[in-house]
Design a binder for these strands. Structure first.
Lengths: 200, 200
DNA sequence: ATTTTTTTGTTCCAAATTTCACAATAATTG
DNA sequence: CAATTATTGTGAAATTTGGAACAAAAAAAT
């Protein structure tokens, strides 16, 4: 399977490439990208070579070509659909997050146990978790965000996997046990902040 | 300097330890913790040994003792103060995030360029960025959250560093250039989600 | 009291990741 | 058009990270 770290670097390269393009450049060298993203030039070249991205010796890499290929890697041309399970603080914030909307990422629906959340006050429709199967099947959803409290994390995860979800972004503070063909990215906001207090 | 990865693992161990304690246990073995957190028992023992945490051969580790020591590592006994720069979507969500409040993490103030945000409608006082110095000095703040748009990230970071901030949690999608005694943790919500679409 | 069992703490080993080094080659210069 | 220079692409070296293995020690069993 593909290296998860290098995948995430590609998304950084992409942001950097767009920046260079806005500045009027058409070509970049590996050390331009590396410097901007904070990795070595060799790392950039290795990443590119891993995905078959070609440059020209002495001429560097063509920005348009790189962006086009990266867009394909991440399916940026189609609509990319996601669901959110858990409409608490984090779930609600993600619904309103411009960063998703601006990048073809559509949050199709939210799910929650609390009926008080099934109102129209959110940017997206919110349903009972009973409806997960229906929504996933109807839209062929493959990607989900888990934003439920700790105790519910694993159970929700198991359900999602059984309904065909392949990629999970997990905000709940649990280590999820999943089959090996499922990819989980973890975001633990509290731990990211708290670890900084070690240095204070 | 200390290994950032093992620091974050300690916070996972902590959550797991609390879980075990709630279940009535007083001792754990490295493989209990490892299994729950998703690392090997050897990794747990290595981490503990790195921070001088002692167990007893055959008896395992004392949960209370581990928790007490981990609490010291992360200064959990005192109040831990933070400021947020950028009161957009993410900044606002973090203000209301229970996970911080429940863990002695106090968001002292928020800062934004937009005067429309200086109202009382947030859970914390929001000021002009001009006031950062005053607030940081008065409260001896050492930790900050950057939640501004891409273009402002580096500038805000430079300001913070010059005002004595030592740890930064960065939500802006830029690689921050900082002196080597400053620690930056990156959270890029969009990239974490987007990288999953590779697999769809 | 001795033996057996279990688990830690640590050294040694393996795998993965990153960096180095350099040949190959395309652009540029004279 | 030959010589020079700059940059890619990649195989080898180095580093980092995680895992296995085992001696030491404590508890339990006999």
């Amino acid at each position: 399977m593909v290296n998860q770290k290098s995948l995430k670097r590609f998304l950084q390269y992409r942001l950097s490439l767009i920046k260079f393009q806005r500045l009027g450049f058409e070509k970049v060298f590996s050390y331009n990208l590396g410097k901007d993203v904070g990795v070595t030039a060799e790392q950039v070249r290795k990443d590119f070579s891993m995905f078959g991205l070609k440059g020209s010796k002495r001429g560097g890499y063509d920005i348009k070509y790189l962006l086009k290929t990266i867009d394909e890697i991440f399916k940026r041309n189609g609509e990319r659909q996601v669901i959110i399970i858990g409409m608490g603080n984090i779930g609600q914030a993600l619904c309103n997050y411009q960063g998703f909307k601006e990048n073809n990422i559509i949050i199709v629906a939210g799910f929650d146990l609390d009926p008080a959340k099934y109102s129209k006050k959110y940017a997206i429709p919110v349903h009972s978790t009973d409806k997960m199967e229906e929504v996933i099947k109807k839209n062929s959803i493959r990607t989900a965000i888990i934003a439920v409290p700790e105790f519910a994390g694993q159970e929700v995860c198991d359900q999602l996997v059984s309904l065909g979800i392949k990629g999970i972004l997990n905000f709940s503070p649990v280590n999820l046990k999943v089959p090996e063909d499922i990819v989980v990215n973890y975001v633990n906001l509290r731990n990211e902040l708290e670890s900084l207090f070690y240095y204070t």
